[in-house]
Design a binder for these strands. Structure first.
Lengths: 102, 102
DNA sequence: TAAAGTTACTTACTTTTCGAAAGTACATGA
DNA sequence: TCATGTACTTTCGAAAAGTAAGTAACTTTA
């Protein structure tokens, strides 16, 4: 009676999207590069702490890229990598489902 | 400077899939109706407590249907509703992404 | 027939994660 | 100089998840 185990790749992805706010964060980043304050404006209910935390996780996973522009006051910008942009069909599928059923 | 707010329908869906184990649970239920113990076998790392909890939540949201068959030993079966089955494109999109990038 | 196993949960307790709020460092503007 | 803006960090109580054991109803095995 051995235990079956699920596709580990899917498991990785499900764990990624299975964290609170990640789906929303990726959705807003699909618009294009955003600054920290822009993300705050787009997702007002998400706390600073969690914005930082999630962005850091997504950066480590190669989904988001953080760029610092040493301007007058420094500007920090977050954008999706190609790995991140490739999540667009997932986000679209979620949106389609939401439109139909929510 | 007013706060923008995101599509609430998408937010609902993102919150749904943004809970741990939900994505995996829906994936295995796409196979067809399963019993509690089958789910345990499919997702061995998910605890009984969380299986019950998630199934209950999904039932409340109309995504999963629970049926009790009063057989010799009673049999309890969980299956996706059409609302639940319609999540298949989402799950497929996640799988495609995982195949390509994980 | 008594002990052990199965199924579908529940309960109790610990650890981890989250949320809310405040604080920090640096910069510009009034 | 005092307030404001940006990008975080720190602290701490609350909620969620992990772990383990327990339960009730029934069945199989010895």
């Amino acid at each position: 009676m051995q235990k079956t185990s699920i596709c580990p790749k899917y498991e990785f992805a499900a764990e990624l999207l299975g964290k609170k706010w990640t789906g929303l964060l990726i959705l807003v980043l699909l618009q294009g590069p955003l600054r920290f304050k822009d993300i705050k404006n787009e997702i007002p209910d998400m706390s600073d702490r969690l914005i930082t935390e999630r962005l850091k996780e997504l950066e480590e996973k190669g989904i988001v890229e953080r760029s610092v522009f040493p301007e007058k006051p420094v500007r920090v910008q977050y954008q999706l990598t190609s790995k991140g942009k490739d999540l667009e069909p997932v986000i679209n599928a979620i949106q389609d489902w939401a439109e139909a059923w929510v």
